[in-house]
Write a protein that binds this DNA or RNA. Sequence first.
DNA 1: CTTGACTCTATAGTGGCTACAGGGATTCTA
DNA 2: TAGAATCCCTGTAGCCACTATAGAGTCAAG
Lengths: 140, 140
Amino acid sequence: MRYRIGEVARLSDCKVETVRFYEQMGLLPVPARSSGNFRLYNESQLGQLRFIRHCRSLDIPLEDIRRLLVSQKHPEENCADINQLIDEQIDRVESRMQSLQQLRKQLVELRSQCSGKMPTSSCGILQGLSDCACHYPAER
Amino acid sequence: MRYRIGEVARLSDCKVETVRFYEQMGLLPVPARSSGNFRLYNESQLGQLRFIRHCRSLDIPLEDIRRLLVSQKHPEENCADINQLIDEQIDRVESRMQSLQQLRKQLVELRSQCSGKMPTSSCGILQGLSDCACHYPAER
DNA sequence: CTTGACTCTATAGTGGCTACAGGGATTCTA
DNA sequence: TAGAATCCCTGTAGCCACTATAGAGTCAAG
Ligand SMILES: [Zn+2]
Ligand SMILES: [Zn+2]
Ligand SMILES: [Zn+2]
Ligand SMILES: [Zn+2]
C-alpha cells in the first residue's frame, strides 16, 4: 500500500509542508515518485514519520531525533546514549519549568500593582516596569 | 550626557546588536549621530531601553512592548489595556507551565521504560517512541 | 471538458535576537 | 606621531521548527 503526501500527513497528524520539511532535513528517506511526480510512501516510512511526530510532541529537537533514528538503525549497539538523551530532555523541561515559575511570580506581583481603571500616568504596572532595579550593569 | 551604543548596551545589560535591532523594529527612537556617524543616546532613551529589557525579562513579546510604549506616551488614557496585556501574559505563562508539566510526566514515564545498558533493539525508550498510540488521525 | 482537490518547486516569513564580513572612527600607548 | 586596540558602522545571513504564500502541474468525478 502506497500513500500520497496528504495521506501520510493526515495519518500522522501533521501538515503536508511539514512532511516535505522533514524530508529536506534528512529525517525522512527520499520517497518514491508516481508517474506524475507525486511522493509515494510505504508503511515503514509512515511509521518513521509518526516516530518523529511523537518525539516532537515531547519537544525533542530535530537534531536529537536524528540521533535516535540513527540508533534505531543499529540494533546491536548499546542504548546508553538514548537514555542520556531523554535525561537531558527532562533536564531542559525542568529548567524551563523553573524559570516559568519565577516569571509567573514576577508577573503576578506586577499585576497586583494596579487596581484597575486609572490614567496610564499613574498605572502601577507601567511604573513597576519603568522603575527597574534589575537592568543595571553588574556591579564590580 | 550622551552615551554611545556600547555604553547604553552595558548600562541596560544587553548587546550592542540588540540595541540596533530594537531601533530597526521601531521600539527605540532614531538616535542622534556624532560627527563620525556614531549613535548618541540620552538618559530618556536609555530609560526606554531599560524598560524594554525589563519587559523582555518578563517574556513580554515585542509587539506588546510596542503597545506599552504607546500607552506610556498617552498619560491621560485609561490603563485597562495594560492590565489586560499583563493578564494575557500571565495566561500564556500558566498555560506553558501546564504543558511542560504534562511533558515532564510523559518523559519520566518514557524514561522508566529502560533500565540501562541494553542493545538498542530492546531499549524500552525506543520502543515507547515507536509504539505511538497518539499520532493517529482523529477518529470520526 | 471543466471543475475542484490534490500535488509540485521555490521562496520568504515568523520571533528575537546573534554572528559574521569588511570597512571606518576613536583612543590609548610607545 | 605611529601603530595597535577598541570601538562603531552597514548589510547580510543564521538560528529553530515550521508556516505560508505564488504559480504551476496532476488527476478523478461529473
Ligand atoms: Zn493599570
Ligand atoms: Zn529590570
Ligand atoms: Zn535504553
Ligand atoms: Zn504519538
